[in-house]
């Protein structure tokens, strides 16, 4: 096994985080405790530079829904972990834009390839809709609500798109025959 140079690794992490303006990076199991801790951390941080209340609320909302979506996939991922995959998801929050005035939340987690077409179709549908369309889809999802129960991503994703007014940037990276790595990026822009 190759010997790891930890001092290099830590320094590299440090530099990468600063270069990408990431303020928080977490990889692992997402629990309610984690959700509470991260949202409190972000709130305190935003309070420290008197962030606008409506932006603060949007960031908070996106964080809660993204963390919840990650945690709802945790069961699948525990099984996967025994097969060699580590962690149940990665969660990143950072600043973006020239003046560092905007935020983005990035998540990544392993999904079964069989679930990808449905998820992709759902994300594309959300991205194709305007404000009124999203409102209608939200109502429909609220009444039916099955996807949300099973996939844990229904209402949350629609609501993120509605509240931020931004398209959801997503991607699926091949891991092996059965699994893919699903990444999602949400922007919260100051307007």
């Amino acid at each position: 096994m190759k010997k790891i140079d930890f001092k290099e690794l830590v320094y590299q992490f440090h530099q990468d985080m600063l270069a990408n303006k990431f303020t928080l990076v977490y990889e692992g199991e997402i629990t309610h405790q984690i959700t509470k801790a991260f949202t409190t951390l972000a709130e305190n941080k935003m309070d420290s530079y008197s962030e606008d209340a409506s932006v603060k609320k949007k960031v908070f909302h996106v964080m809660v829904e993204c963390l919840q979506n990650l945690s709802k996939h945790a069961e699948d991922l525990k099984i996967l972990r025994n097969n060699g995959y580590s962690g149940s998801g990665i969660f990143i929050i950072g600043k973006v834009g020239e003046e560092d005035e905007n935020y983005h939340v990035l998540t990544g987690n392993v999904v079964k390839k069989t679930k990808v077409p449905e998820l992709e179709a759902f994300l594309d549908k959300i991205n194709s809709l305007d404000k009124d369309g999203l409102k209608e889809l939200y109502k429909k999802q609220m009444r039916e609500g099955t996807l949300s129960e099973k996939g844990g991503a229904g209402l949350g994703l629609i609501d993120i798109a509605r509240k931020t007014g931004e398209k959801l940037e997503y991607n699926f990276i091949d891991i092996d025959d059965k699994n893919a790595f699903y990444t999602l990026r949400t922007k919260i822009l100051k307007k």
Binding site: Q68, S148, L155, G156
Partner: peptide
């Protein structure tokens, strides 16, 4: 003040 989407189902 704030509620998440799981709560909105409960309110419904």
């Amino acid at each position: 003040y704030y509620f998440n989407t799981s709560t909105s189902k409960c309110f419904m």
